[in-house]
Nucleic acid binder design. Structure first.
Lengths: 199, 199, 199, 199
DNA sequence: TATGAATGAGCCTTCATTCAT
DNA sequence: CATGAATGAAGGCTCATTCAT
């Protein structure tokens, strides 16, 4: 047999790495970081315990990778929206996307976990720079939207919208659950900016 | 010799229990729940390792007690405000109090911890009922204020304010830190309701 | 009030001591020695933990006292039988008494525990002398009976009867339980000596 | 490098497991179950403390495995005897084997331990079914022997022999020790059935 | 004599990580 | 690249015992 090409190797590596991340995310979300053992992750990812350490230096660095991937998963779609001309359309898409993302029962626990990671001092000691970078990116996106909308104070308006969105998610995901008026809250937000719609 | 009196025993118990809660709160906040050992707590509280178990069934139930105390610490002052006649004054006091509470550098880490507890699935599985009870209490307080203010939809307005407040805290405590425009955000909120001020 | 007399003090002491022994026996039998805490014993005996140590030097010495009491409880009735003239009557009474003792469901667990103590090397290291003394007493009783019966080899017959009795108890109490033909075994034993009955 | 082969893994596992059982049996017998720590077992077996838990779920399940092995160790030789034609020869071999087994000073403490396990309520709660299965097997063996001997009531005779044997062992191992007339007792038993010898 | 808070050694168990193959 | 047996530190927790009152 011919030796595997470079790309094949890379593909294999990526596949195993993804399987691990996927399995770990699921388990962490359901049982917590400390409630999930490397054994369990290896089992779920159908690889051996030892192999894990070929891809991640430690359990913690696996967690960091998951957090990173969480941000990237939001980042991609968000950047796609830049193509939309109308700033209200962009905002609308972001808000709709955020709420949709969180509504799926399957995903709810996943986002609750993301939120729980980000509120933990121990994790943020390591990951603060990365998290801040992404958050600033989102804020910049908001700001550019509000500029295009000719909102009075785009920067502050960005802070307000971000706080409102995350506050809603926090309440919905961790405190009130299904009884939360998620849809109404979404409409409240959108209505507030409705006046800026151009079309 | 005669055994200690009931009051003597109670005093002993109260003192030890308080020392444990105080030490554990500090350590949990700084190092996380799993990063803090019972040994460390006992050391900080200057008691023996085993004594903790005279007062709490487990490390987890100690955490629960801390969470509970956190809510009670907010609850007391909040209920005091009911005496204020002007609803705007009540709102003003709550908002000012909340921001003040969180600003003290000493306390920041403590409130970040409270927030991190509440976002953790494993904790909420046990404490959801209790947390929900307190949250509903706060919402009721908000609602009654907005009713007195004759705001159009007091219930929804409560959800909005609560989300905004917690979103701000989340961003300030866990993501942006000192660079967060805390003061401006506070003013934004208050300005919004300024029109309802009666005096 | 007049000071308590010596006897009253002694009576109190004895009463507490007995309550402890009674409670401990019950708990040990049901949960095992190591499965029973001093706290639990004190609770069941309705005294304080500290008081236990006025009566017994340690948990182990309490166990020893229980074992001792077990032997004494058999010893008393057994010695009473010496008054019976007919040796077969004496034997009959002993055998009947033994089987009766063990049949009561309440008591079964208690005798199973006695047996379990006596088979434990760690306990026997301490108590071997005492146990041996009592056992030899019983053997002497048997031997005197068989002598009076003019059995060929009284000493060996004593060993045989003792082994048979304890073997039956062992099987009944620990292995076969209710399905054991206890009554038939008793009759087998008695029938064997029936020929020696004098009346 | 290639991972170990299946057989290599199995060999490793078998070796470690056996070492653990051997070490634990010795220590349990000498110091009792509760008097023996996992640390001590690991030390004696020359493995790390944690490794025990790769092979046994808990200290208790290790005890269970030991008990099981004890029965299997008797079971094998006993079943071999089925090939003997003369039932008296079979009985003779069993009785001789039993007494021989127990006489070796090295093994005495081991069999005392087996007996002590079987008398302990806490153990029997878990293992009763298993123990009963083996005991019934032995009883069946006895019964078939007595049937072949044309003894009047084979079933009852089995109970009698079993009780006598275990009673003797109990007295020898736990109470009387070296002073016990073990040899004479053996002869008594054998003489009793001598008449049934065919050759 | 009586109480129960306090001690602290010691236990079982878990699990991230290593490493020989 | 892949395996899983082996390690060992560390942790939560129990409980016999002590002691100030």
């Amino acid at each position: 047999m011919a030796p595997r090409s470079e790309e094949q190797f890379l593909a294999l590596r990526t596949k195993s790495r993804d399987k691990i991340i996927e399995a770990a995310t699921e388990l962490f979300a359901r049982q917590g970081f400390h409630g999930t053992s490397i054994s369990a992750i290896a089992g779920a990812a159908e690889i051996s315990k030892g192999l894990m350490y070929n891809y991640f230096d430690s359990k913690e660095s696996l967690l960091d990778a998951i957090l990173l991937k969480g941000f990237e998963d939001i980042d991609g779609p968000m950047n796609q929206l830049q193509t939309l001309k109308d700033p209200f359309e962009r905002l609308y898409a972001i808000v709709e996307g955020t709420f949709a993302m969180v509504k799926n029962k399957q995903d709810r626990i996943h986002w609750q976990f993301m939120m729980s990671i980000m509120t933990q001092h121990e994790v943020m000691k390591r990951m603060h720079t990365v998290v801040a970078k992404y958050m600033k990116g989102y804020m910049a996106t908001f700001e550019s939207i509000f500029k295009d909308m000719a909102v009075a104070n785009p920067k502050m308006e960005s802070y307000r919208l971000a706080a409102m969105l995350d506050g809603i998610l926090l309440h919905y995901l961790s405190v009130f659950g299904k009884s939360y008026p998620l849809e109404e809250m979404k409409n409240e937000i959108l209505n507030q900016y409705e006046a800026y719609r151009k079309t």
